[in-house]
Design a protein around this nucleic acid. Sequence first.
RNA 1: GGCCCGUUCGUCUAGGGGUUAGGACGUAGCCCUCUCAAGGCUAAAACACGAGUUCAAUUCUCGUACGGGCUACCA
Length: 498
Amino acid sequence: MSVRVRFAPSPTGYLHIGAARSALFNWLYARKTGGTFLLRIEDTDFQRSTDESTRSILEGLKWLGLDYDEELVFQSANADKHRAAALRLVEEGKAYRDFTPKEQRADANVKQEIAERARHASTEGTDHRANPYRDLSLEESNRRATEGEPFAVRLKIAREGHSSFEDAVYGLQERDYSEIEDLVLLRSDGHPLYNLSVVCDDIEMRITDVVRGQDHLTNTHKQILIYEALGAAIPRFAHLPLILAPNKAKLSKRKHGEVVSLTTYRDRGFIPAAFRNFLALLGWSPAGEEKEIMSLAELTEKFTLEGVHRSPAVFNFSDADPRQWTDQKALWMNAEYIRTLPIEELLPMVRAEFESAGLWRAEYETSKREWFAKTIDLIRQRFYTLKDFSGQGRAYFADDIEFDDAAVAKNLKKEPRLKELLPALGQRIAQVKTFNVVTAEETLRAFADESSVKAGLLINASRTALTGQAVGPSMFDVFDAIGQSRSVARLRDAARLV
RNA sequence: GGCCCGUUCGUCUAGGGGUUAGGACGUAGCCCUCUCAAGGCUAAAACACGAGUUCAAUUCUCGUACGGGCUACCA
């Protein structure tokens, strides 16, 4: 039977990078095995689900290049089927109506409550099967339900035995039934609960392999019990190690902010292939492979569930240091992609960046196309994100240069003679007949000799005069890229900064 | 509290009964050089701890510690 996997996010916020990685691994596994990759939006929590989140998830997957097969499924559309399944289990005696009035529970301190309740239970000794309605006759149960008494539906867990499954990543997993309480399938308001919905939908979508975060590992036993009650085939499971924050806690929106959102990476100038590559290597590594830069095709070819790790991975970043706003390796990988991508693939991304920065000009695709490609190719060597093209790279495409104070101090203000030398150099350059990398160098060096100054002085001063910065490509390439007339104008203008 | 999972340089990781414990990011230094990168070379940097098995344990087993997850009429 061919592999069918799914990515099933809940649309309660942006796409979390951990979720994005789950999607990626599912996708890779599907493509690797020639299987099918499905997408299901788990929007059953109508309080928190938003259309905007759904849109953001779809955009995120598209950005990462993860296309899904078949129709998108919205879990909320199947609520009736989930309800019917639960009621069917009641009829079959595999589940029962619990008429205990619903407890009020404040979401904020659930974890604490659970711990307290558990502590209590362990001192008194609990019986998960002690529910008084567990053995109510079906007739009585039906009668009370017909009379309109509210009830939740609970799955009847056997008193003896244990469940087990072989996780493709974590190995054999066993859990005694005594540790599992009769879990609620349907709320008293008729709303189907997560574990039921997931199982029903996975059955209906004919999912063969459930690949998801490790946070679901222990709940899997409950889901298996639901599969069994429903008489459905149990899929294979593979749980993925969690991605942790530097403080070793689960990465979360509330605590760690935008660094966990996939859209942040898009908005801050990441190349999809680079971020995808980075994500793939977080919690997975290809067998006997030292190369880390891998295309989607290579990742697909190398991907195996056996290569998935069991220990969690720390996503390393620092709130204190803006240069480390995200993992340094991700940043390095993005830079690597920026300088090695075929220029034709990079250009559209730069264009998008320029359009949003207001730097785009139509002639970059027509009369100045060649110049544009050459200039981008020149400056990309030392850039980390696409943002750098409109930031540090601005001087090549606009005339309102921003001068870096440190650069001005270092390259212009230190030598008073530059006040005369710069315009004079400009004058000299203006006279060059054929201005290019070679003649720019000849002119500058000759002028330096005549003026009895080191070429380096003029080179560095020119760099700041022309680009506003202290760092950049070889200066003669810069002259060539910026062109004769603009170079002359900027050299003259820079005298005021000396 | 109970159950489950994990632990190799700061981080991502390779490896696996005998290795100088390998690579990548980051850090430092050198080379190159008109600056900064890139590139090349080099350096510092790790098997959580304790027992057991064994001629030999970082690797296998068991404990301990630490970290994480789950435990809800949330998803």
